Simulated scan of single mutants.
Amino acid sequence: MTPTTDAAHAMRHAMVASQLRTNSVNDARILEAMSTEPRERFLPEQHREIAYRDTLLPLNGGRRHNSPLVIGRLLTEAHVASGEKVLVIGAAGGYSAAILADVAGSVTALESDPELAALAREALAGKAGVTLVEGPLNQGWAADAPYDLIVIDGAVEEVPEGVMAQLKDGGRVATGIVDRGVTRLATGRKSGSHFSLVPFADIECAVLPGFEKAKTFQF
């Protein structure tokens, strides 16, 4: 079921007040966008009634949709600037791309699952500043590179070199990482050929497939 307009409005503002403001989501632009964008519209219909719960939600192919807190923390720590060019990897239904479009203005949203891409295409229809593209998540989207910021909307074991090559020098990444079975949120900045991620919060985060580290041989 989809909540009524009034119910969704109340739940959205409760989410901002109780989940985000109390947990270091303090960028006024991110808070404004998340209090405005109807999160339920970016979710499969069977989950729209619980769109504002502080939990991960199941999606196609074993994927999961991140909680509002994960998205709020990632985008806050990304320090998004107006006019920046952003790539979202793992767009799912398009929610994080919509938030970024409200703040940055130019967003490429990459999704690999056809059904999720169809959902995002419908949800983002008429949304200025967002281009939805389909392809393997672990390859990024070189056609629109270079980017000021890459947001990986999920946790990965590593960021592929091919994705890093799509960043401008000085560009940033905001992502979840998988570290010995624990998911953390992290950010990093590219400087020449150097890049490293610095974790800033241990939070349950949806794991994206296709970003596994190559297994090393052990005796």
Rank of each mutant, 00 (worst) to 15 (best):
residue 152 I to T: 02
residue 64 R to S: 12
residue 174 A to F: 05
residue 112 S to N: 08
residue 121 R to E: 15
residue 14 A to G: 14
residue 73 R to T: 09
residue 190 K to T: 06
residue 143 A to D: 10
residue 216 T to G: 09
residue 179 D to P: 03
residue 130 V to A: 03
residue 98 A to L: 06
residue 151 V to H: 00
residue 29 R to P: 02
residue 173 V to M: 07
residue 126 G to Q: 05
residue 160 P to A: 08
residue 98 A to D: 02
residue 27 D to E: 09
residue 138 N to T: 10
residue 142 A to D: 09
residue 34 M to V: 02
residue 5 T to Y: 15
residue 117 A to N: 07
residue 154 G to F: 09
residue 69 L to A: 06
residue 163 V to M: 12
residue 22 T to Y: 15
residue 205 C to S: 13
residue 58 P to W: 14
residue 31 L to V: 00
residue 154 G to R: 11
residue 134 E to V: 12
residue 96 S to R: 04
residue 133 V to F: 03
residue 215 K to P: 06
residue 134 E to Y: 03
residue 50 I to W: 05
residue 98 A to F: 01
residue 15 M to F: 05
residue 152 I to W: 02
residue 147 Y to I: 10
residue 26 N to G: 15
residue 18 S to R: 12
residue 132 L to V: 06
residue 151 V to Y: 00
residue 192 G to E: 04
residue 157 E to Y: 01
residue 152 I to S: 02
residue 191 S to C: 10
residue 129 G to P: 06
residue 16 V to F: 14
residue 181 G to W: 07
residue 12 R to H: 11
residue 111 E to G: 02
residue 85 K to Y: 12
residue 204 E to G: 10
residue 123 A to P: 06
residue 28 A to H: 07
residue 118 A to E: 15
residue 215 K to R: 15
residue 33 A to I: 05
residue 193 S to W: 13
residue 86 V to N: 01
residue 144 D to W: 07
residue 183 T to Y: 03
residue 52 Y to H: 13
residue 114 P to I: 11
residue 137 L to H: 07
residue 53 R to E: 14
residue 83 G to K: 00
residue 104 A to M: 03
residue 38 P to T: 11
residue 42 F to C: 11
residue 167 L to G: 01
residue 106 S to M: 05
residue 79 H to I: 06
residue 75 L to R: 01
residue 90 G to N: 08
residue 22 T to G: 07
residue 104 A to R: 00
residue 8 A to D: 15
residue 107 V to D: 01
residue 218 Q to L: 11
residue 76 T to R: 00
residue 181 G to V: 12
residue 50 I to D: 10
residue 79 H to P: 10
residue 24 S to T: 09
residue 195 F to V: 13
residue 200 F to C: 05
residue 14 A to H: 10
residue 119 L to Y: 03
residue 162 G to T: 05
residue 120 A to F: 03
residue 212 E to M: 04
residue 101 A to F: 01
residue 117 A to E: 05
residue 179 D to T: 12
residue 9 H to Q: 13
residue 119 L to C: 06
residue 153 D to Q: 14
residue 89 I to S: 01
residue 119 L to P: 01
residue 149 L to C: 07
